[in-house]
Write a protein that binds this DNA or RNA. Structure first.
Lengths: 342, 342
DNA sequence: CTGAAAGCGCTTACAG
DNA sequence: CTGAAAGCGCTTACAG
């Protein structure tokens, strides 16, 4: 009685019978093969629709060797991770692109060693490929994934050592930082400092270089007292701004490597009686939601987060189609969004 | 040449051959059956280890009818969703429990109609069950899932209509709110008001009832001017507190249905020159990270978020084991965390 | 263009 | 306790 309640799911066999063709022909029609007669195509589609046929994916996987499953790997300790809009948007972009290809996304945490082991097991057992949201640089994770010889695409530049096979998609952090700094210069700023991110994060490093590009090109100084290192948190932005102000009281422009730190910096400037952008112009990076409503609304650099996720998915699909492809490193453009802070 | 590089994955057949038993026996050993001789058990395990055997899950699924895949369904517009620690923690708890059972979690967005359709398709095709993080009440989603007749467990109380088959795990919102309010009463508060959440969210509703339980039991009034409705945002907490203060200037205790609104309320109290907890005591709900470092540190109600996720997973696993089980509604205890605001 | 057949790698009654 | 065999639902050469 139990288990007999539901009608059994129709199989290809039943569709073929209803269409008056063989199972092989039905399969060919449903997989979109071209060498099939129009009559057969029509009959099979009609039968499939009438029976509400859905293929058994396990059976298909058994013969194709593909699972149609891709892992979304995340190496952040999860508290951070989920509260990061970067993660959410990249995941959504990837999810969209994969759905269109009928590939599903398995959420895979890889924050600690135990989780990393599980990931490796899971990947070996049932994943066709990996999409890695790579927040903090995690050399062990990168190495582990390379060793598995599984198709993978990382988000964010992965420092390439030797003959690495890593694929990645990144935003143009360096170009965006340069554009932000050049915007400050164009407004007439001449003592332009920067608050950077942690040196071990590729994004932090690249955004620092962009600032350097711009000030160097303009023939302006870039000595150590022009630079304060933060950790991308608002508090660290406050501390960094305080230090910069002490070292160079007459600074007139600040390029900050992310919006959160920019908010901290602006708060400190206000406390010191400096108006923004009147006395000091400030540009951030990320274009988080709050940038639009902060006081003043923040001029910042926007990166195409969902686009990064989508592109990662597309590149992974390419790898799946041809495992012999050479690694691709793709850099997506960023956009300066001018508001009131600079 | 390509594709021939890797050694072919060992199959059960090869393990059986190496162990000198039949494929059937090897299968029985590996699936932990008891009716096997100790000698066979040892030989098979040894062979499997030596060959680094991993079962082909598609083949297994084809015969068992199970995929070993569970969907994590999320109905929030994703911006919110990911920045919500509730989501992150519930997901992590569920992930842990499922991993232990070798079940993987497929991330499934169901924010709009298109995504909802994809979910239904995906579930029909490849999921054994669903874990639904049910933020805003979404009747359509609940109905859609019930219609699919797929094992599912919701987070958060789902209003049950008629002969619903919904399973859910919730925190004891009502009990927690009652405890919070009783704490205010115990400190001597006598004019105790509340800021509630949206009426259409079960959590908001239940937390309001808990406040009502406590003040009613204490013989205190609970008229409309004791209640202000917010939307769980800090700003709405500010607005609500402003209204309450206008309606009842001599209030001395506030139970707020979440921490974010409590922060807003405390800010307004400070602006009105009321000290917390000296003039007005305040209790929140959620125990978010910031509650520990706010000024003053917030007394609040903590709910076992990861525990909810874990329990959801366990209940889903039970359903998978026996689809005929009656729906379970489980309520997990909350804890009052006393800090400085009350 | 199409059918018959083999085979993907497992699990599970069925005999013994 | 164990082996031989059937079968899960597909895809894909292979002939024709």
């Amino acid at each position: 009685m139990a288990g007999r309640v539901q009608n059994p799911r129709p199989t290809l066999e039943m569709v073929a019978a209803a269409a008056g063709v063989s199972r092989g022909t039905a399969s060919r029609v449903l997989s979109g093969a071209t060498n099939v007669s129009p009559a057969a195509v029509e009959a099979v589609h009609k039968a499939a629709a009438e029976l509400r046929y859905r293929p058994n994916l396990s059976a298909r996987s058994l013969v194709t060797g593909r699972t149609g499953l891709v892992g979304l790997v995340v190496n952040e300790s999860n508290d951070h991770l989920f509260s990061d809009p970067y993660f959410a948007e990249v995941a959504r972009g990837a999810h969209d692109a994969l759905s269109e290809a009928d590939v599903a996304m398995v959420l895979t945490l890889a924050g600690d060693a135990r989780e990393r082991d599980r990931l490796i097991e899971l990947a070996a057992l049932r994943l066709d490929g990996l999409l890695v949201i790579h927040g903090h640089s995690d050399v062990e994770l990168v190495r582990g994934i390379e060793r598995m010889h599984i198709p993978a695409v990382f988000s964010g530049r992965v420092p390439i050592t030797g003959t690495s096979t890593v694929w990645y998609v990144d935003a143009d952090n360096r170009g965006g930082a340069r554009a932000a700094t050049e915007h400050l210069l164009a407004r007439g700023c001449r003592r332009v400092v920067t608050i950077t991110g942690p040196r071990d994060m590729a994004a932090g490093h690249d955004r620092h270089l962009g600032w350097l590009d711009a000030v160097t090109d303009a023939g302006l100084p870039s000595s150590d007292d022009h630079v304060a290192v933060g950790d991308f948190s608002t508090d660290s932005g406050r501390a960094a701004m305080t230090r910069l102000l002490a070292a160079m009281p007459d600074l007139d422009g600040v390029y900050v490597a992310n919006d959160l730190m920019a908010f901290g910096a602006i708060a400190v400037l206000a406390e010191h009686g400096r108006s923004v952008p009147g006395d000091v112009a400030v540009v951030g990076f990320d274009d988080v939601e709050a940038a639009r409503t902060s006081n003043p609304p923040l001029t910042t650099v926007s990166q195409p987060m969902a686009g990064i996720g989508r592109r990662m998915a597309e590149l992974l699909l390419q790898q799946l189609a041809d495992p012999e492809l050479d690694p691709v490193h793709e850099v997506l453009p960023t956009t300066l969004v001018v508001r009131d802070s600079a």
